Amino acid sequence: MKTVALAIFPCVQSLDVAGPLDVFAEANTFVGPEDGYEITLVGADRAPVRASNGLRLSADVAFAEAADAYDLLLVAGGPALPTQGCDPRLTAWLRATAPRCPRYGSICTGAFALGHAGLLDDRAVTTHWSDAQRLAEQFPRARVEYDRIHIRDGALVTSAGVTAGIDLGLALVHEDHGPEVALAVAKRLVVVAQRQGGQSQFSPLLTAPSKPHSPIDGVHAHVIANLRGAHRVEDLAAVAGMSARTFARAFKLETRRTPAEFVEGARIDAARNRLEAADLPLKVVAYDCGFRNAEHMRLVFVRRLGLTPSDYRARFRAPS
């Protein structure tokens, strides 16, 4: 029997708790009692806590009562963790217990709790796409992978947001019991055993420049309004009123991407909007968004999103 501890706290994301635990509970129906998972919720105390959606949860044991080690230790996420910090009692428990566990990690923004405990240094990690940049800024020694659904680096396992905890749980069941059991659990939960693509299929590739009304902001608007243009660095530099070298350096500093990466991201986001909203032929979408042709758009989608334009439309097309 593998022991699993999952840390909870006030305003925890309830799906971060229920998702992976349902995976382990379902796995118990397919393996013998000696090979299953014994699940323990751990909290600051045993008093009920209110999840972010209002659901009441109670820990089985308090941090002070918990075992010295578990086969797997996880901490769930919560919407306040990226901005409001972490309960010092949770931080102390993670710092003391996680290094004794063969596997430990987080679901969603639970990665911030691990970071406060010093457990992300020099490790590849992921979290919810909307908080990945903040995680990288708060814990600069962590190697944040922005597009991963889940990732393992040694004993550390981390996942993207919310339902990605199910993906992480399935990956761990696959690791423990093989692909047949993981697939059987996925079928019971009516999810895919391994989803295509990364987080970028759910998140916008572009964010507004950090300085509104700056020359870089003007270039941003120019590209969005003229997706069919060639947008060479020299041309974009002229829009910004800079030399090409100064522009390329300033653009990378302000947006954390090269001009070419930005232009490609703008075209992908525009194409995604069209694929979600209408049944336009792929060659029309490609032309409207500045790709050379439909095949070029397909290659860029696969490289950046991990799935084709047709697959993207099938997943995200708005109902008529």
Score class of each variant (00 low, 15 high):
V31G: 10
I216C: 11
L114H: 05
P102D: 11
V61W: 02
A136M: 06
V223Q: 12
F24S: 07
R95A: 15
G43H: 02
R315Q: 14
A25M: 08
E180Q: 13
R103M: 14
H222D: 09
N226F: 07
A240H: 09
M1Q: 11
V219Q: 14
A92R: 13
G32D: 11
P48D: 00
G169K: 12
V4M: 07
V239Y: 12
L90W: 01
L73I: 05
A51N: 02
P79V: 11
A59S: 14
V49Q: 02
W93M: 01
F247C: 08
D87F: 06
P99G: 11
R100E: 13
A5S: 11
A117P: 12
R95Q: 13
G85N: 09
V61G: 03
P309R: 01
I149G: 10
L94C: 07
C108P: 14
K211P: 12
A240F: 06
M297W: 07
D269K: 04
I268F: 14
Q84I: 00
R141T: 15
G198I: 01
A111Q: 03
Q138Y: 05
F301S: 07
V263R: 13
F30G: 06
A266C: 13
V49L: 08
G197D: 09
P212W: 01
E145V: 07
N293K: 10
Y104A: 14
L172R: 03
E295S: 14
A66G: 15
A266T: 00
A314C: 03
V144W: 07
L172S: 04
S203R: 02
A136S: 15
A111Y: 02
D176K: 00
V23E: 06
G32V: 03
A184N: 09
K283R: 13
E137N: 10
R50W: 01
V61K: 04
L119E: 09
T255L: 14
A286S: 06
I224G: 14
P82G: 08
V31A: 12
Q138G: 11
S159D: 02
E175T: 10
E34W: 06
E34I: 01
R56C: 09
I8F: 08
